[in-house]
Amino acid sequence: MAIRYEDVNEGVRRIFLSGRLDTAGSEQIAPEFAALTESAGRGVVVHLSDVKFLSSMGIRALIAGAKAQQAKGGRMVLHVAGNEVVARTLEATGIDELIPMFEDEEDAERALRS
């Protein structure tokens, strides 16, 4: 499980998650993920294309991050880029209806500006 980020223009932060976001992996990255979403500018794109597995604990971290962004007037979106396993998990739990999910990175960042 790995997490890294980069800040781009207009206050957008890209957070890249990779590996196995099972219960153990999610607990491992949750504190850093929370800190990164809380300290971001006005928008966060979470890149999930390299995530091999997404557990309910991982989803819990995503929801907490999205709420933190919303509380400060920002927004969080997800970039899945053809990752069918992760997309199916997000759809099965209805999280894609709460946190917008995009196949295309430009569409994801455009959504933050709209």
């Binding site: 309910s56 819990r60 209805g94 709460l98």
Partner: peptide, 18 residues
């Protein structure tokens, strides 16, 4: 039941849904 909004989302029970 699925929450109507992000603010109403409660992550509890997601494991059973999965």
């Amino acid at each position: 039941p699925r929450p109507a909004s992000l603010a109403a989302a409660n992550p509890g029970g997601l494991g059973l849904v999965m």
